[in-house]
């Protein structure tokens, strides 16, 4: 069977639009989700017992069920409750809620991995708990979570393809509709796959760059 990519040319803008949608949904869900994740993390480690249990349940529920089922619940189930959501909103909300649970766990691991000795050194200098967190723990913890967070961004970008199943017009959706009109299935899947690959490779490259420039102090240290 001969491959021919020429038929795809008229649809290149459709594919790029899909990529754009995937990107901005990823970005919004990453920002909103990692902010919500902070709250979930604080709720989990905070002093309120019921809240802590609730946050743990939330994290476990999200992490042990597929994103697709979560999206279904939001997309198909909410209208039954009288809330009508466009696919874009359902996808953004779903990815955000999903992302919050994962980032909350990343924060927890990050804070736990800061050596206890740093906290003690701060205490021994007479610093208050808030000052210890702000001036001593926060930056090393951020450094520790940074690779995991950028990885989460890439995973989220790839996961945004699941939005196509609830008819979100993102890249995978565009790939399948081009495939359906041109019958150049292999070709368009290859092009689409390369787009995903290229963007995730760029993200990973950028995150490595950012890591070395943001945390220059960490060269030679293992925090």
């Amino acid at each position: 069977m001969a491959l021919y990519f020429g038929d795809l040319l008229p649809y290149s803008s459709l594919l790029l639009e899909g990529l754009w949608t995937a990107l901005y949904i990823t970005l919004v869900a990453m920002l909103a989700g990692s902010a919500l994740g902070v709250l979930v993390y604080l709720g989990k480690v905070g002093p309120g017992k019921p809240l802590s249990i609730l946050c743990t349940c939330y994290i476990e529920a999200i992490r042990n069920t597929p994103l697709l089922v979560q999206l279904y619940l939001i997309y198909f189930a909410l209208p039954a409750l009288g809330i009508n959501l466009e696919p874009v909103w359902a996808a953004v909300i779903g990815l955000t809620l999903n992302n919050a649970a994962y980032t909350a766990e990343i924060y927890r691991a990050g804070f736990e991995s800061v050596p206890h000795g740093l906290r003690e050194a701060g205490k021994a200098l007479g610093m208050k708990p808030g000052q210890i967190v702000r001036y001593i723990i926060l930056l090393p913890a951020t450094r520790n979570v940074f690779p995991a967070l950028t990885n989460q961004l890439i995973l989220l970008f790839l996961a945004s393809s699941i939005g196509s199943i609830i008819s979100l017009p993102e890249l995978t959706n565009a790939i399948m509709s081009v495939s359906n009109t041109t019958y150049r299935t292999i070709e368009v899947l290859a092009v689409g796959g390369l787009l995903y690959l290229g963007v995730s490779a760029l993200m990973s490259l950028a995150s490595k760059r950012a890591e070395t420039t943001l945390f220059r102090w960490a060269v030679g240290t293992h925090v």
């Binding site: 000795g117 050194a121 021994a124 200098l125 007479g126 610093m127 090393p140 945390f215 102090w217 925090v223």
Partner: peptide
């Protein structure tokens, strides 16, 4: 604690602060 300084076996320096900032942190903030 401000009257009793403590030195630890494993130093516990703040890795993200330059040497001088490690020394200046408590005077500035505390």
């Amino acid at each position: 604690r401000q009257e009793a300084g403590m030195v630890f076996q494993h130093f516990n320096l703040f890795p993200h602060l330059k040497v001088i900032d490690n020394v200046m942190l408590a005077p500035l903030k505390v």
